[in-house]
């Protein structure tokens, strides 16, 4: 009984510590991570500069059924990733330092690499181009590559 009581007390202490850490983490929530783009034919135009610290921003555009991530690399270059799981084609959500799939739990880092299966292939990268004060993402039928 004493052992059980000790375990229970230790766990309650850990719960308290965890709750404190959690409230601190959640207080830093960043809605500026989501930006709106304009769908123009087979491309989406997103105004620059991107808000917030990044490095990953979620892009949504009226009329386009997919979510895209714009990731600013350490070299300052902007990459676009299609947020569709490469395992079962399910939509991904931004979570932590990357993206996750609620269907089977696959996770990807902000470069699109698989960090947890069952997905095995990196996220599809979409072609981008800087035009003035905007980044243009090509969302037509021919993405540049499976990264």
């Amino acid at each position: 009984m004493r052992r059980r009581s000790f375990i229970a007390t230790a766990c309650i202490a850990c719960l308290g510590a965890g709750s404190g850490a959690l409230s601190a983490l959640l207080s830093s929530c960043a809605p500026e991570d989501v930006v709106t783009g304009d769908l123009e034919g087979e491309s989406i135009r997103v105004s620059l500069p991107l808000p917030g610290p990044g490095p990953a921003h979620v892009v949504r555009a009226n009329g386009y059924p997919e979510t895209i991530a714009l990731v600013t690399g350490s070299d300052g270059e902007i990459h676009a990733l299609l947020l569709r799981c490469t395992h079962a084609n399910n939509p991904l959500q931004k979570s932590g330092d990357g993206f996750s799939c609620s269907l089977h739990g696959s996770r990807f880092d902000t470069e699109g690499n698989v960090i947890h299966g069952p997905a095995s292939r990196p996220l599809r990268q979409l072609k981008t181009r800087i035009e003035g004060h905007a980044v243009v993402i090509f969302v037509g039928t021919e993405p540049t590559s499976s990264r």
């Binding site: 959690l22 959640l26 960043a30 931004k94 979570s95 932590g96 330092d97």
Partner: peptide
């Protein structure tokens, strides 16, 4: 559900 950094609640 809400995610921030490496936490999700």
């Amino acid at each position: 559900a809400k995610s921030s950094g490496n936490a999700r609640i």
